[in-house]
Amino acid sequence: MDLTLKVWRQKNREDKGGLETYKVTGILGHYSFLEMLDVMNEQLITQGKDPVAFDHDCREGICGTCSLYINGEAHGPDRKVTTCQLHMRMFNDGETIYIEPWRSAAMPVIKDLIVDRSSFDRIQQSGGFVSVNTSGNTQDANALPIPKMNADKAFDVAACIGCGACVATCKNSSAMLFVAAKVSQYAYLPQGQVERKQRVLNMVEQMDKEGFGNCTNTGACEIECPKGISIEYIAKMNREYLSASISSEE
């Protein structure tokens, strides 16, 4: 199929940027969206133009590196997929496709379609971990009994790959689904109990510092999340936060 692409081009953080129109030809339905972009870049290079910069790594839907707001939706029109798992059979010959970077004050564009997602790293560093003594006497994790339901829920939220689709699709650029996933994954497990209160307080504080918006419960994030993480975990984070705010000694 032949496509018309409206691609966001931006030299650097300071550049204002804008949409450029490119024609790309010879795309097959079984190409992934990123393979289509590879073909586009090959054609641009042949024409003597600069290729478009975009993020990608594993290309098998598990690393969360690829992003892209495609035709008005995070990761494009398919559900529960990352951009690398989005196939061109979802599009029609002759179609015009808009390709834009995530839009959020907390995730500024670095170049073209690449955004700086280090705000997620800083949130994670503020409490999204379990401190473990590495003296060599660490207990076998399997020795701790964990109810099946809790293990399942922790696993569901641990599936978050931190891609940022929740922020990109939220009309308020809120990161609450991401933070809720990271808070909940430890709150369900015995290993996460020691730092439970401080974790949620610190992570929410860091989220606010980064300049993300406020959740208004539109539910768009859970629809666009490639891992299908439910907003029931945002409610859980709210409970965790309230409880920690009231009972924390600091």
Binding site: G72, E73, A105, K171
Partner: peptide, 24 residues
């Protein structure tokens, strides 16, 4: 505050694909 969190809007956005009008 929420509007300030997205200073550059999307050129193409389809919010009705994932949320209802009332919530937005």
């Amino acid at each position: 505050k929420n509007k300030a969190a997205r200073p550059v809007k999307y050129a193409m956005d389809k919010p009705s694909e994932n949320s209802n009008w009332m919530s937005r």
